[in-house]
Amino acid sequence: MSFLTALIILGVLALIFGLILGFAAVRFHVEGDPIVEQIDALLPQTQCGQCGYPGCRPYAEAIANGEEINKCPPGGETTIKNLSELLGVEAKPLDAAHGTETVKKVAVIREDECIGCTKCIQACPVDAILGAAKHMHTVIAHECTGCDLCVEPCPVDCIDMVPVPVRPDNWQWDLQQIPVRVVESGNE
């Protein structure tokens, strides 16, 4: 009998708390940024497809549906860390199957070799290549995300990926990397 009483009491309690929780969930519902938007905002937007999805937004959608967060080489550790903080999951090392984190690069067309086939223009996910059929193409360097996607389609292999140059205004204070010139001193 006491066993039954306990069951009933617990059951009623569970019901009451369930109702309270349900009420609270509806009453205090917070309309946040949709999670896909938040994930997308953390991705580097190179649109390179190295994750296996055709762009950053599709990958963001996949992450929202439970995909791993460590498949974005351009974003690297920083992106993984940010994603893990946003989603409350554990940060993992970058999945090497999708590539490794390298220096930021930008595509450059060797313009005298370009035959004007427009294949790279079609491949570029951010419309950063300018040109017309049978005319020379060129890359708008500051719009290029360095995604690599234009290199493969080029029939004459005239696109190079070159590292983004370090200029005084984006220099990161690496004193050790400054080449020091050794000069003869007159007094020794």
């Binding site: 937007q45 649109q47 937004r57 500051h142």
Partner: peptide
């Protein structure tokens, strides 16, 4: 830069 890239990508799509 990534914000601009996203806009350009979406515009292209």
């Amino acid at each position: 830069k990534s914000e601009i890239a996203r806009e350009r990508f979406e515009a292209r799509q």
